[in-house]
């Protein structure tokens, strides 16, 4: 005889629970953490490179870099002044998950840091589904990707706490209707804090740095 057993359990429940453990571990060490997500080449590592020197002597920063195979990005973060830079190779996976972040946290003496920056794998779909346990999720959109990305990747735009619009130095050269882009963002994530900037020229970076420092100090 067949019987139906009701379950109603979220498929990624196990990951979500581990993410909560990561969060608890970060909180007890007094570390504020962000998860930076974006498509490949949007400028995640470039933004981290611009950010680190500006936090020098203010915050102690660790960077965890998710990458399918190489350590290029972690090397760039170390070069730019991260007190620790850890590479997590996902072995072909298209996203970091809570287990991978836990492995990285185990390699860090968390008491030594104020801020943890996680660079997720370049991908606009999968990272949105896998919580890591970080305090805030940040999405970097970049001008050359096109203004229709909120409409095509709603899952990513909906889940984030801050939006960086990078490569604004390219606005004169690429067709990008800012009001069309902003309208999609507004529907998916009303009122999300947005930082238009250029990780190349440094324009607009100050507002982003202020937001980070305020969050670390707990008065966001």
């Amino acid at each position: 005889m067949t019987i139906r057993v009701p379950i109603v359990e979220n498929i990624l429940n196990a990951n979500d629970r581990l993410a909560e453990e990561n969060r608890a571990r970060l909180e007890s060490a007094g570390v504020f953490s962000i998860n930076i997500m974006a498509s490949p080449g949007a400028g995640k590592t470039s933004l981290i490179e611009q950010t680190l020197p500006r936090l020098k002597n203010k915050l102690r920063v660790a960077v965890v870099d998710g990458d399918i195979a190489t350590s290029i990005d972690a090397d760039r973060a170390a070069q730019a002044g991260a007190q620790a830079a850890i590479q997590v190779n996902t072995g072909g996976d298209c996203h970091l998950d809570a287990v991978m972040l836990r492995g990285a946290l185990e390699q860090l003496d968390l008491a030594e840091f104020d801020l943890l920056i996680v660079e997720n794998v370049g991908n606009l779909v999968c990272p949105a589904s896998f919580k890591l346990g970080t305090h805030k999720s940040v999405l970097i959109a970049s001008i050359p990707e096109g203004d229709d990305k909120p409409y095509k990747y709603p899952g990513m735009y909906r889940g984030v706490d801050a939006l960086v619009v990078n490569k604004i130095d390219l606005l004169p050269y690429v067709p990008f209707k800012m009001d069309y882009f902003e309208r999609g963002v507004e529907v998916l994530n009303p009122g999300v804090v947005t930082f238009p900037l250029s990780a190349k020229t440094g324009e607009g970076i100050d507002a982003w740095i202020d937001w980070l420092i305020k969050n670390v100090n707990g008065n966001s």
Partner: peptide, 20 residues
């Protein structure tokens, strides 16, 4: 109107299993 919200489509769960 441009004031719209997503109301369905996020579901992602094991609802039940049939067993013997």
């Amino acid at each position: 109107s441009e004031f719209v919200q997503i109301t369905k489509g996020d579901e992602f769960r094991v609802d039940s299993i049939d067993v013997e």
